[in-house]
Amino acid sequence: MLTILFDGIAYGMVLFMLACGLSVTLGLMNLVNLAHGAFAMAGGYCAVVLVNRLGVPFLAALPLAFLASALIGLAFERTLYRHVHRKSHLDQVLFTIGLVFMAVVAVDYVAGSSQVFVQLPDYLQGRFTLLGVGIGRYRLLIIVLCGVIAVALQLVLMRSRFGSRLRAAVDDARVAQGLGINVGGLFAATFAVGSGLAGLGGALGAEILGLDPSFPLKYMVYFLVVVTVGGTSSITGPFLASLILGISDVAGKYYLPDLGAFVIYTIMIAVLIWRPQGLFARAAAR
């Protein structure tokens, strides 16, 4: 029972890493970025190359994966995404789906179409039992790492100058702009960090979710569910949503394997009907 809970939390944490960037960019710029998973994939492949080919230690490869995805994200933001900020949602959907198609094929071309894996160091493999709960070492690492990052994100958002600007911009971009906040720059920075976190999630999640060129398509729905359920106005929303989703998905498969993916889709639609702005969003709709 507790083991299932533990696995669910780890799974939820990976989802949070993957999706939190998406929810912030959506909240800030009202940008529907279906290609978010492509940045996660970039981070994953980056980790694979670093660890397997170049022999970089796994733990050192994680920040590098973050940096690489963040840089790629920044480059795309400045060159391509900035042109679609002001376009309609339909345009953004078309644009980002196009990017997904291109990313899938490009990775297939460069890295081949089969599954790849990050080779884990020995000390992260296997598991131990603590008070009757089976704890996988790797999953423990994920929980600790993602937990720390989530807390750090929350602190940055709530305490720092950057955070208060960001919150102001999310609340009302136009007024924030008027107050002299550089919303465009803020957005680019957020986009880069969001992509970097996705990349880190991709690198961490490869072990659990697998990694192949169709990654952005396969998991797009999961990201969207997290964002839908969690809302786009804070970090805590997607965080709690990811945990709920992770735990209910894992527990659903354990206790009710016949229901399969029904659980998460039903949650998503139910939440959308009940609270279209997300479960944890403030009541004020924008």
């Binding site: 839908t228 399969g260 998503m268 639609i269 279209p276």
Partner: peptide, 28 residues
């Protein structure tokens, strides 16, 4: 009735969700 609620983004998700749910129904 589901689609009429909410704005563009909600509609995107609801329509996508309905299609996925049906796919899963057919699969199961």
């Amino acid at each position: 009735f589901l689609v009429l609620r909410g704005a563009d983004l909600t509609r995107l998700m609801v329509t996508l969700g309905v299609a996925l749910l049906l796919r899963e129904l057919a699969n199961k």
